[in-house]
């Protein structure tokens, strides 16, 4: 099923453009000890995405938590070739900012509407980091999204 795109406006964290399939979690992500940097899979025991990799996805999450090794894990994921294509998050922290910078993928935050409510896993998402614009094409949804 295809529907009209939803546009979100936010602020650039890291520039560049990328598009891909969204991977959405409502839970914050721990980098060190929460992600396997060589596969991009979430490993945190009680995490809803446990076992799922963010490789080549558009990662949509509330924010970063946990160890200060966050940036090293995401930096290593870039070197290992398992980085997400882009990142979208709500809560700005030093961990998320530095991680996004060294991962060198487009990244946007501070949206006019909540991306966690509007994007579902499987949606096609285009991230324009330079202009802070995110375009969502809802795909494979059971119920049509409310824009």
């Amino acid at each position: 099923m295809s529907a009209s795109p939803i546009i979100l406006y936010g602020r650039k964290v890291v520039g560049g453009c990328a598009q891909g399939e969204a991977l959405v979690t409502q839970q914050t992500i721990s980098g060190w000890g929460g992600v396997n940097p060589l596969t991009g899979a979430i490993i945190e025991t009680r995490h809803e995405l446990r076992g799922v990799s963010f490789k080549d996805r558009i990662l949509v999450f509330p924010g970063a938590k946990g160890s200060s090794g966050w940036s090293v894990v995401f930096h290593t994921a870039r070197l290992a070739g398992v980085a997400p294509r882009a990142m979208i998050f709500n809560e700005m922290t030093t961990k998320a900012a530095l991680g996004a910078v060294v991962m060198r993928v487009p990244c946007v935050t501070a949206f006019d509407r909540d991306p966690l409510e509007l994007i579902e896993t499987g949606d096609w998402v285009r991230v324009d980091g330079d202009n802070g614009i995110v375009e969502i094409r809802p795909l494979n949804r059971r119920t049509p999204p409310c824009a």
């Binding site: 200060s68 940036s71 090293v72 930096h75 030093t94 910078v101 060294v102």
Partner: peptide
């Protein structure tokens, strides 16, 4: 201090 990372 904020929680800085290795690079910063």
């Amino acid at each position: 201090t904020n929680t800085e990372g290795r690079e910063s």
